[in-house]
Design a protein around this nucleic acid. Sequence first.
RNA 1: GCCCCGAUAGCUCAGCUGGAUAGAGCAGCCCCCUCCUAAGGGGCAGGUCAAAGGUUCGAAUCCUUUUCGGGGCGCCA
Length: 578
Amino acid sequence: MTLRAELERRLSAALERAGAPPGTPAIVQPATRAGFGDYQANGAMGAAKKLGRPPRELAETALAEADLDDLVAHAEIAGPGFINLTLSDACLGGQLAAFSAEVIAPRPVTDASPRVVVDYSSPNLAKEMHVGHLRSTIIGDAMARILEHTGHAVLRQNHVGDWGTQFGMLLAFMAEMSSNEDTLAHELNDLETFYRHAKERFDADPAFAQRARDTVVRLQRGDPVCLKLWEQFIEVSMQHCEAVYARLGVGLERRHVYAESAYNDDLAQVVADLDTAGLLTESDGAQCVFLDEFKGKDDKPLPLIVQKRDGGYLYATTDLAAIRHRCRNLRADRVLYFVDNRQSLHFRLVFAVARAAGFASEQTRLEHMPFGTMLGENGRPFATRSGGVVRLTELLDEAEHRAYALVTEKNPDLAETKRREIARVVGIGAVKYADLSKHRTSDYVFSWDGMLSFDGNTAPYLQYAYTRVQSLFRRAGIAPGTTDTTISLAEPAERTLALRLVQLPETLEIVVRDGLPHLLCSHLFDIAVAFMAFYEQCPVLTAEDPALRDSRMALAQRTGTALETGLDLLGIATVDRM
RNA sequence: GCCCCGAUAGCUCAGCUGGAUAGAGCAGCCCCCUCCUAAGGGGCAGGUCAAAGGUUCGAAUCCUUUUCGGGGCGCCA
């Protein structure tokens, strides 16, 4: 249990003993200002209002009832009825002593752990991955890591798009070329161009367009020639994705891929199940589900179409099949979808239908974790001047390029291979952090300079703070292992840093609850800022007193662990020097 | 027409179940490397939190209306 949760628990109980109704929250938060202590409890005011009692008096009574001696050194009532709490040095010291082994150690995952499906990345294999895929891939991966660290059984699902009409066009184009293996291999080397060429062919030649449509039908019927081409294409495209994942340090592997096509055989059964459940209605020849809670134009019912007039299935059907699979076979307690916010209505419908049909129980939490659209500098959905998109590989190349130039400027004496390594870690880290540090749901504007900034609240700043810790240990000639040194918190900078470190699990708790990794970014930045202040104000290696030196080394060590662990949870690596 | 999301400093954004004097980064100006890495630190300046009402002891946060953006709404995914 985190400090915050423990204080909440005890103060809530105290409020109840002071006369507030059971379940009254104490509303413990980190203090909004340094002068108010470390935490503040705001719950007494609201509770007093309901009881018609003076808020300060209720706060006083609750505080007198509360048993906080082992955690809190000072507590006082302030303003209209805030309870301000200052942690004792013993409490902070205890947390710091157990920091690596307990406070931020990974929670074990057992059979009893909550099972969380994380659906993320899920690119369409028809095209190359571009910058628009960053959000789902990066944020989803960070969330998977954080959930795993906090004791959840995480089931990554990469729901790649490998089925649908555009594959007809691509396969027909491949078929034209398959007489010449070299040309085909060459063309497939660049999926973006391949797609464009196929599309040009499709638009220009009606006969080709017809062949493309026929190909879709043949593919769906399992025509061996089509299937072979399809498999070849999918394999090339998957390998491209995996190369990008490897470069990004994203933990998605082949075993996490559960493609759209994997549900093909379930779709008829899904529709049959909906029929059995009495949910199916035919409308204009299509099979639909209408739910009372969803109304469209003119109060007309809003359909979820699960089967087209021509008998074909839609992505709604596939998503229903996926929910069924995740709940029944994967035994998910919670399913998180890191998918573009434009699909939010779609998910609301699909989730509601899945529950109505019994594909998901009432207990299973189905949560769309929407994210905003990447916009161009004109405020329109992002595209380059030529109308294309920026490929992910281009962005990463540029990131490493700029980072290499910078590290060479800052540290020309480092060996070439070392500078390459640093450039890779720093460049990729900057790109990921630029994405992770923004609120998930907000649209954001793509900008090379914004995404590749190395100053201020960026990954390189955090990585730099980490290298300073490593540098201290390097100079001291000792390994940065955990020691049982008593940590002095006499200096304000020491205390502020200690508090930020100890509060890290509280942030993780909120991130897990809301799926908002930018809160972790923000907290790590606070830690780094606090460390920089500590570093400026508190001499470590040159401290006169050996005990103080050891204490500060120990605090630096905790900082290093926090930064390394926190960055790792975001999927960002560290280096020892930069 | 209906629904969803948004509007906070010049720019990019935080602001967690309503809390005390709305915070960062960048850009601007000033200062700090004989001192543990200046990818750093310190300081200055910068806001009628889109607008108007309302609820509340207390509103950037909740409610209503309006304005301006973005997105979605029957056989694409």
